[in-house]
Design a binder for these strands. Structure first.
Length: 433
RNA sequence: GGGGAGUUACCCAAGCGGUCAACGGGGUCAGACUGUAAAUCUGAUGGCUUUGCCUUCGCAGGUUCGAAUCCUGCACUCCCCA
């Protein structure tokens, strides 16, 4: 292994450092290749969402720099619930839910850490562990004596996550209050068994990370370090990855590759520029040239296209990216002809559909107005007529100007499916059985 | 308990006997423009078997050839006095 690139400088250049412990000490420790650095992921759902991508990318950068990332799945901490960044008490997850979540989240973490980057496969070895493996058998009394005894209450009460919750009406339970002890113990445990001395996370994790550092010093006399990165937010102040329709998930069953891809394509210029730095592994020179291109010819949307391609490829692979691009061409492009029903169903996975008897197409056929109404593209037949009159009615992406138009077997794009559209973006599939 | 004002379509809000499916604004939808952005402009916006028909203006009755508009009762909201 050659000399490790300066990971901290890389983080700083990409705007990934919000707070960190002593940079000089950190830099020195990181100068040796093969260092282990961890980030935790609590399995609060069966899939991660784009909000988790920054942390995943941090781990990939760790690996790319010749160190060894450690991803900790919170099988134990997920039982308790992290109060950080939350305004209300969490509901406890059932053991069954939790097991499913651990499986889902774990699979995604492994896949993303295993994916090849623009510069080929990642160098460093990757660890994926579950903190339930070392927490499960720790007895309550032992934990109170071995860990709790070394954590001053004043310190716990001083954390923002606790303070802000105490000031609210709901307060927080003892269970969530204890959360930081578990995460602190994780850090000390990983230092023990893996010599992992740096924890990274979102800026809301600072309190939990410093709790671990403090515990390490009191318990082991060792120097642990922490880095937090700014939470990814959009220019309008909302969280990255939240849309009106809900979160953008990494699981293709929850968010199709097409919608995932479109999310990045639709970011505004500034947000896209920032994401390029934080969420991709493109070299800084390349990002700089994209910045220049964006300033010179913003309409080309090179930044968004490149960002969407990079992130989609990482999460959904080449095939997912290809599917998203194909769907994009169709959604924004030409007339739809000769696609088979499976491909149509795939491309239009996010789109509502209406079922009709095959016989509806026979004879005079099915009035387009009825089909638009039945698939929900128009609230009433009157609205459907209006849409067509005003030039917003499409069959297979071909504009239909005739209000009295009737669908017949000639209009089928696949064997039994055709595509209806109202306006620029509202699609529906009509299936005939 | 007494007096006054009000209740109109998704929201706000005009209309005060016929030309009212009901002005205007917001929202929404469609079109143009555009960078799959923002802004702007244009059109539409109760339903239907659509050159016509049906159902809407708090609810129920009534007057009238004809009512969202006038009368009576009821319900709810707001304001003033007690």
């Amino acid at each position: 292994m050659s000399v490790a690139p300066d990971l901290l400088a890389e983080f700083e250049a990409r705007g990934l450092v919000h707070q960190s412990t002593d940079p000089a000490a950190l830099r020195e420790w990181l100068a040796t290749p093969g260092r282990r650095i961890y980030a935790g992921f609590d399995p609060t759902a069966d899939s991660l969402h784009v909000g988790h991508l920054v942390a995943l990318m941090l781990l990939r950068r760790v690996a790319a720099a010749g160190h060894e990332p450690v991803a900790v799945i919170g099988g134990a901490t997920g039982m308790v619930g992290d109060p950080s960044g939350r305004s209300e008490e969490r509901n406890l997850l059932s053991p069954t839910e939790l097991a499913a979540n651990i499986a889902g989240v774990g699979g995604q973490i492994r896949a993303i850490l295993a994916a090849a980057g623009p510069a080929g496969p990642l160098a460093g070895r990757v660890h994926v562990v579950d903190n339930a493996d070392w927490m499960r058998d720790v007895g309550y009394l032992a934990f109170l004596r071995d860990v709790g005894k070394h954590v001053p209450l004043a310190q716990m009460l001083g954390k923002d996550s606790v303070k802000s919750r105490l000031e609210r009406d709901g307060g927080l339970s003892y269970t969530e209050f204890s959360y930081m002890l578990l995460q602190a113990w994780d850090f000390v445990h990983l230092a023990d068994v893996l010599d992992c001395r740096v924890q990274i996370g979102g800026s809301d994790q600072w309190g939990n990370i410093t709790a671990g550092i403090e515990l390490g010093r009191r318990l082991r006399g060792c120097d642990l370090h922490g880095i937090t990165c700014p939470l990814l937010t959009k220019a309008d102040g909302t969280k990255m990855g939240k849309t009106a329709a809900g979160a953008i998930w990494l699981d293709p069953a929850r968010t199709s590759p097409y919608r995932f891809y479109q999310y990045w394509i639709n970011l505004n210029d500034d947000d896209a520029g920032r994401c390029l730095l934080r969420l991709t592994e493109l070299p800084l020179e390349e990002i700089r040239s994209l910045d220049e291109a964006r300033a010179a010819t913003p309409a080309a949307r090179e930044t968004q296209k490149r960002l969407a391609a990079e992130v989609t490829r990482l999460v959904h692979g080449e095939e997912g990216l290809a599917a998203a691009r194909q769907a994009t061409d169709i959604f924004f492009g030409a007339e739809i002809t000769a696609l088979d029903d499976a491909a149509l169903a795939e491309i239009f996975a996010d789109v509502p559909s209406g079922e009709f008897p095959r016989s509806a197409l026979d004879g005079d056929g099915l009035p387009l107005v009825d089909a638009l109404e039945a698939t929900g593209l128009a609230k009433s037949k009157g609205a459907a007529r209006r849409t067509i009159e005003q030039g917003g009615g499409y069959v297979n992406n071909r504009r239909v100007a005739d209000v009295a138009y009737r669908l017949t077997p000639r209009d089928l794009a696949g064997a039994a499916t055709l595509v209806l559209r109202s306006g620029k973006k509202s699609y529906a599939l009509a299936r005939f059985h």
